[in-house]
Design a protein around this nucleic acid. Sequence first.
DNA 1: GTCTATACCCAGATAGAC
DNA 2: GTCTATCTGGGTATAGAC
Lengths: 206, 206
Amino acid sequence: MNNKEKIFHVSIDLFSKYGYDGVSIRQIAGEVGIKESSIYNHYSNKQEILTTILNYYVEEMVSDEIPLDQASLNMDRGFDFFYQAGCDAFLSKLEEEEMMKITRLLFIESYHNDEVRDFLKKSIIEAPIEGWIVLFDMMKAKNLIKSDCDTRQLSESFFYYGMFLLYEHFFLNYPEDDGKFLEDFMRKTQSHARMIFDSVKIGGIE
Amino acid sequence: MNNKEKIFHVSIDLFSKYGYDGVSIRQIAGEVGIKESSIYNHYSNKQEILTTILNYYVEEMVSDEIPLDQASLNMDRGFDFFYQAGCDAFLSKLEEEEMMKITRLLFIESYHNDEVRDFLKKSIIEAPIEGWIVLFDMMKAKNLIKSDCDTRQLSESFFYYGMFLLYEHFFLNYPEDDGKFLEDFMRKTQSHARMIFDSVKIGGIE
DNA sequence: GTCTATACCCAGATAGAC
DNA sequence: GTCTATCTGGGTATAGAC
């Protein structure tokens, strides 16, 4: 690994622990094993390191979304199966340690970095919500759930629970074991999803 | 208002906007209209200003909790009424502009301030969850909800939705209009609560 | 209680030798 | 591409006059 790569990975580690402002160029250089002035041969300034990390994350996270016809098939195999398939795409990305670190970085920087905040809002919250609305509308059309339920409210009720678990993990319990968290996350969101589904499903359907 | 009070209120305003590290003593002094050295006649250092703010918040927020027998009565008057009563205590505190500001400060500082983090975890999350578990257990005993439901999962499914709305407001939409947020918050959590309740209530009961 | 002046530190960043 | 040396600016905090 060359020094540019080292700077990149060390920065992810330190930024995710202490936040962008909480880490100095000197600290990064020290961890890499070079002098701070050498950093500027690879990145023109500190902000550029952060931007590079964010771009990397976006590229990695652009999920090959599950095509709708596949979702439609999954739906017929029962809600639990359907839900599992929907989550796996997202969670498989988070399993990599470095992606977890950047995700924490995103969360803790979101309050004073416009770029980060917009990314979180659009890609991590709004896009999935819109996706779930489409899916719940399909379920409505198939008579799997009640025709009078508000699919936006349903999507939010469903999705925000997991979002809060993420917040709780990254802000309040960090750096608790990520593996254990992901395990708990799957279990808890599954219970939650089941509960939400029970309130709108049409009797007898699994 | 004397200068010590001015320092206090100006600090709340600035800290909530830019975070603790994002605000300098110079900036606070400038906003108050004195020189930075004068700050130290009132507070021994910057950290003490923050601690004073946190203590103030804790004192104000120590809610006179709704006594359980009152809750038991509310419960018999229907879930919506019951829920409303439970929320009002908390939200009435948040209606004051300054309490909203400190709440935002709590959220954004929680990742690198142990004191803040512990307060958030215990008082804002764990305590209410334990409270709701007691209440749902009471509802179970009264045969208002299904006897086989997991009241902890129920409490989390119920409560975390609102917590995420708070996160979303304070991190991602700040400084959106607080009044509008509180209004939306009431409406959305009410819908959500109704949905959760529907999934566990015993048929026919309102 | 507020001021001026200043000490001291650490941050980001640059110049130029090797 | 890395180093030493240095600049500049901002931060917290203190001393001492008024």
